[in-house]
Design a protein around this nucleic acid. Sequence first.
DNA 1: TTTTCCCGCCATGTG
DNA 2: CACATGGCGGGAAAA
Length: 377
Amino acid sequence: MASSSDPPPSSRHHTYDRKQKSLGLLCTNFLSLYNRDDVRVVGLDDAAGRLGVERRRIYDIVNVLESIGVLQRKAKNQYTWKGFGAIPVALQELKEEGLWQNSQEGGNEDTKVSDEEDEDESLSQPTGSQGESLSQPTGSQNDILNPNSAFPRSLKNDRREKSLALLTQNFVKLFVCSNLEMISLDDAARLLLGDAYNSSTMRTKVRRLYDIANVLTSMNLIEKTHTTDTRKPAFRWLGLKGKTWNEASLSRKRAFGNDVTNISFGRNRTDSFMGGDFSQNLKKQKTMENDSGLCQDDKNNMKQKQSYQFGPFAPAYVSKAGTSENKVKQVHDWESLATEHCPQYQNQALKELYSHYMEAWKSWYSEVAGKRSTQVL
DNA sequence: TTTTCCCGCCATGTG
DNA sequence: CACATGGCGGGAAAA
């Protein structure tokens, strides 16, 4: 349990560095620790122990990671490691779910929709390939923006509504479903609250968003910046459009002051959130507009360092280089994984998306591995 | 000062 | 009941 350095409140030296305790760093370490080809399950106790943090913090991380598809609760104190490969699918689902919800939006919806969580029968399969239950396109935790609450909710649902997990998903939907690509946590909170944002509720919500933003940032799904003109801090969605997957994590070049690639979006007034123009088309297979001028250079950049060399860590299902036949197999792994995760999306679009994404993750990971010397053992 | 956001109390859920 | 989860907000370290 307790060992190594601790924060003795009144210690001579030992500059208690708050940054070393950030959720973001913890998340990075967490990922480094479990992103191995031989990891299938993650025990919370184990994680807390290995990472040297309190249980409470593990819950925070695990909750948001699960929202992104990286983990999935399997049993008490135990999660299944799904890996980065599950992210694209998870995001796609969030997008569809979000778009659908938008289309439902009207004067007063509420009505609590349906609900009842999906039974999710425990199809406990020994080891090996597990079944997964992503078949149902809809019907999972929904009810999202604008809770418009005021009634004594299920009480049970109420808790769920305020969970970090749901908040994470809604936060992500904000990016994935709208044409917004940058937003301040302040606005996000206001938006997600939908109603009276008492300075009190607001504060709490923002605190939570900071937590979420920190772990999403550590995964490079978002990035912190400022609004084009104003100096207002905000977060930009990096997500699927592999923007600066390599550069972003480096961020050691701090000499320049104008590296801010090109913020293509001229107007990013954080006013017209919803109600803007949503391509209300659930199930459209038009991938997210790619190359719009953002990442063209990066592609080159990425290409030239094609020789990734995973350090101590390597994406799951990508065995450390070795036999040559292994190599051939690797190439197809992500593919089979994709279909395995979501058989309903076997279209070319998703495939490419997936492929591109995995490449991004690979390079990103080698970056992180080399940069931070995860002090985990 | 304001912005970030860590810490851990303690309500709630589960077995 | 004990133990697992995880809201929630005080308040202190960074801008």
